[in-house]
Design a binder for these strands. Structure first.
Length: 238
DNA sequence: AAAACCCACAACCGCTGTCAG
DNA sequence: ACTGACAGCGGTTGTGGGTTT
């Protein structure tokens, strides 16, 4: 027995660690993370390994900016489910709960700050709780699966639209709708950052380099495909 | 050019749920 | 029925890079 106990590593992962983890997961599958952590030779906890895999190394992950469509989807799903990030993430193929959570945080903070600037002190409801602030927005509250596909609000109809329909529909305008239901207009706005469904979908870096393996990818895709019409083209991963 | 600020992302922590023994 | 191990989830914090002043 080796009795030399090294400290469990924390902090950023190195490429070498990533490679070790990827190879170990390929060998043993995506479970028993404590076991994987041990046999991989990484001085990491199983938890840490799992997180690294799920959020960064997993094949099929999209990288890069959220597309306008994804932004709208997040908005809608968050309105339905609140901070159920993993649940929301399941509806966004290639995105992780962590990613969505971060995105939401960043944007909500931004919006909250803008609100503070723009609004008088009298109406001080936080945008973080818009769900309860604007119950009159039907698509936001209590919508179920069918409603999502047959609903009548602006957001819902946008969600139903094709990407072409969404061109020029700005995230800011969506936020405006939430904050002031009915006040939505579709003119092109000032913030060009949202105006094109750009978001270059970059591959997961490690996977790109080390594991051009077919069957791992298939496993994941197979899960997503029926629900989302997820296609290989989306991620340009392999 | 440098400092300050902002944003996006990665990672950790603590808690909860699940399941096998 | 109980318990411990493991997996997953949501919240939070840290950090690096880009942008603005």
């Amino acid at each position: 027995m080796v009795t030399v106990r090294e400290e469990t590593r924390k902090g950023p992962w190195t490429e070498q660690e990533d490679l070790q983890l990827v190879c170990t997961v390929r060998l043993f599958g995506e479970r028993r993370w404590d076991f994987i952590a041990k046999v991989s030779g990484l001085n990491r906890t199983g938890k840490s390994c799992r997180l690294r895999w799920v959020n960064y190394l997993h094949p099929g992950l999209k990288r890069g900016r959220m597309t306008p469509h994804e932004e709208r989807l997040i908005l809608e799903l968050h309105a339905r489910w609140g901070n159920r990030w993993s649940r929301i993430a399941r509806r966004l193929p290639g995105r992780t709960d962590n990613e969505i959570k971060n995105y939401w945080r960043t944007h909500m903070r931004k919006k909250a700050q803008e609100r503070k600037k723009n609004m008088s002190p009298s109406s001080s409801t936080s945008s973080l709780t818009y769900q309860s602030c604007h119950p009159e927005t039907p698509s936001i509250l209590g919508i179920d699966e069918q409603e999502l596909h047959g609903g009548s609000s602006c957001i819902t109809s946008i969600l139903k639209g094709t990407p072409a329909d969404m061109d020029g529909y700005l995230m800011d305008q969506i936020w405006m709708e939430i904050e002031a239901p009915g006040a939505l207009s579709f003119h092109n706005g000032k913030d060009s950052a949202y105006s094109s469904p750009s978001g270059p979908l970059l591959p997961s870096p490690m996977w790109d380099h080390y594991c051009p393996d077919e069957h791992l990818k298939m496993d994941d895709e197979a899960k997503m495909a029926p629900q989302f019409g997820y296609s290989k083209g989306m991620g340009a991963i392999y």
